[in-house]
Design a protein around this nucleic acid. Structure first.
Lengths: 103, 103
DNA sequence: TTAGTTAGTTACTTTATGTAAGTTAGTATA
DNA sequence: TATACTAACTTACATAAAGTAACTAACTAA
């Protein structure tokens, strides 16, 4: 094995190529959202969503805020690092518009 | 479940979020390559690489060419649709440079 | 006291990926 | 002639990741 790829790029790709991670971030680009809202908007299971949100929080891409209302409200939003992924998401949008069928 | 995401975007993300797919395309951006070269440059197993290349060929993103030399040489390269992913990859590069540690 | 809400977690099943050995086709070497 | 070498896969089997559905915690409302 003789890797020639930049380790930072490889890590970024590793993050984004985990199932659901990209869609979670994309959803949060349109503003803070709660757990059940992300769950239903992209169709991810609670088990995996919970896991991904923890990972993204550890990576400093997502921020978790608790509002002690009734019932409790917990909001997930993007940090600056997360928002910085927007241009990337826009390129993905363009490509999908130009090269994929509406189906 | 009430999905609001554009189905084309979702499909694009589904493609790119399969493990190794992004790195395979990224590698091919620098020119045609053969199976064993991709395998060793990104560290993917032959089993999965074979699967991915077939998928990408079916998607019209990758092209496979056989050169009947000795031993046989088979080259994989990007189609126009695959090359169109370059801006997306460049944004990913930028983000990883700006926001990830060298480690 | 029973029920409802959000945000999870747990146990279990199915699917995806990793690992290592085997296959095919065409030479080349002993 | 027999053995060996190469690239490009494929197969069988083991492990890891994701899906499913039921369950929990903390709180309030009826």
């Amino acid at each position: 094995m003789d890797k020639s790829i930049c380790p930072r790029f490889e890590r970024a790709m590793g993050l984004l190529s985990q199932r659901w991670t990209g869609l979670i971030i994309y959803q949060l680009l349109s503003g803070p959202q709660r757990f059940c809202s992300i769950e239903s908007s992209i169709g991810v299971s609670g088990r995996v969503l919970s896991e991904r949100l923890k990972d993204l929080e550890n990576e400093g891409i997502v921020k978790r805020e608790v509002f002690p209302e009734t019932p409790v409200r917990i909001e997930y939003s993007l940090t600056e690092k997360g928002i910085a992924l927007e241009p990337f998401m826009r390129e993905m949008e363009k490509w999908s518009q130009n090269w994929l069928e509406a189906k």
